[in-house]
Design a protein around this nucleic acid. Structure first.
Lengths: 250, 250
DNA sequence: AGCACTCCTGACACTTTCTGTCAGGAGATT
DNA sequence: AATCTCCTGACAGAAAGTGTCAGGAGTGCT
């Protein structure tokens, strides 16, 4: 049996059991050595299958391996599709694929008639003009924010000056025609905004900021009040404001 | 990427598409040669995944593949939250509540750690300025579109002229600062665009248009190209066109 | 009919991964 | 303490995977 099949078989074997299974059992079932089972389990875990192994016990598959059936209203389906279309139009390219995956998975666990509701959703989110194109990988940037890593950034600001700094990412804002990172800048010792289309180089560092992202977010929100215009007002810093239709692209 | 992961990726790539995919596309997506894709597809077919391949067309995953999809990834959770935020910010008020419900339902079937991913999603969709406020109920309008009902509309156009007409709704476009209905107008005997914030009165009729919405949508898409001017008008419909990368901004 | 596009197969050399064996560590349960 | 079990490392031989090249055949468009 080929390895990829065996991995399937293993998850199935775990799925159908309630009680822990030993590696020895699995080894016998799949006719390979125990050592191979250990390696296979490690592979599965690495690709996200929630298998828990305990010494003296065996392996159990924790809940949350596959998506259980889901029930939504037709209206909710439409709303989800609209959301997906927003993301596809305004998110970065990689995120478009991600949302498509998510929608496909959800469609797959929906009853047939609702699947139709998704397909026929009549709510659209058109966008004109061109979206920003980044030099750096927004996907990587998103991962850095998610994993709470420091980032070394080479950046060209609005006055065309280049700097390199280490920042602690807080959030990503998806605007109409730009995307912006809010981060704490070690150099300035304060929060700063960076447009993704002005980032020249991005290096995700191993080290983490001294504070958790949620905390940084709170802090940033506090400072925001004192410069409300920056986010909520039309007159915010140019780098976070959405480009106006017709404004020259940089 | 290891082979077993790639096989997963491939099925998901097929699942998320409605249209055929070429081996070349899949090869590029997974960074592997076409030959390998052919081999992988053969493997998947051998293990029972109903993939149909046709020369000159590409691959499609036939329906009837009932293996439940894998659990959502953290990235997918983030993407969905971004979508939800888009809808909350840019959708009508009622739709905001609807998307919240949908997200709550999805969260309910997620394992703890992913629920956290949703809660902590760091992707935001801020909006500047004010959103349109409607006199009519957009919720009702949405329902009319969904149920494919004729609508009697009292409308004030851009030159402030009021008219009352019966239209066959096709779709709703959610723009940056306006929302628009595309519909076939019985009075004009052609497709017209109506901004929701200029609708004065709305009556959903019992009767249905003689053609299904999907058909109307197709027809509208065809006419779109031949009446470019209508589309670029301020009132409208400019916005409904999918943005063409590199095309001049209007 | 011709053309472009696509799926599909075979062969071959090269690389990578997989696998079993052996040896040992560490946590859990009895 | 004894036993059961998960888990890791090393190593060498086996197996599978991979890209390249070459070619066949079906589909749809002009």
């Amino acid at each position: 049996m080929a390895r990829s099949d065996r991995l399937m078989t293993l998850t199935q074997a775990l799925r159908r059991r309630r009680h822990p299974v030993t590696a020895a059992t699995l080894a016998e079932e799949t006719a390979v050595s125990e050592r191979t089972i250990y390696r296979d389990i490690a592979s599965l875990q690495a690709s996200g299958v929630p298998i828990r192994g305990e010494a003296g016990i065996g392996y159990v598959l924790e809940s949350g391996f596959d998506l259980p059936p889901l029930m939504l209203t037709a209206e909710e389906c439409e709303a989800m599709m609209l959301g997906a279309r927003f993301v596809r139009q305004r998110g970065d390219a990689a995120l478009g694929r991600v949302i498509d995956d998510a929608i496909a998975k959800i469609e797959a666990v929906l009853p047939e008639n609702l699947r139709l509701s998704m397909r026929e959703a009549s709510l659209y989110a058109p966008v004109f003009g061109t979206m920003p194109s980044e030099v750096i990988s927004v996907e990587e940037l998103r991962r850095a924010v998610r994993d709470n890593r420091k980032i070394r950034l080479r950046y060209r600001d609005l006055s065309e000056r280049e700097t390199t700094r280490v920042v602690w990412p807080v959030l990503l804002g998806y605007f109409e025609r730009t995307r912006g990172l809010v981060a704490f800048c070690e150099m300035r010792n304060d929060f700063r905004h960076f447009r993704t289309d002005r980032m020249l180089e991005l290096e995700v560092l191993e080290s983490r900021p001294p504070r958790r992202r949620a905390v940084l977010l709170k802090e940033w929100e506090k400072t925001r009040d004192s410069c409300e215009h920056a986010i909520t007002g039309v007159d915010g810093p140019a780098d976070l404001r959405p480009a106006r239709p017709g404004s020259p692209k940089s």
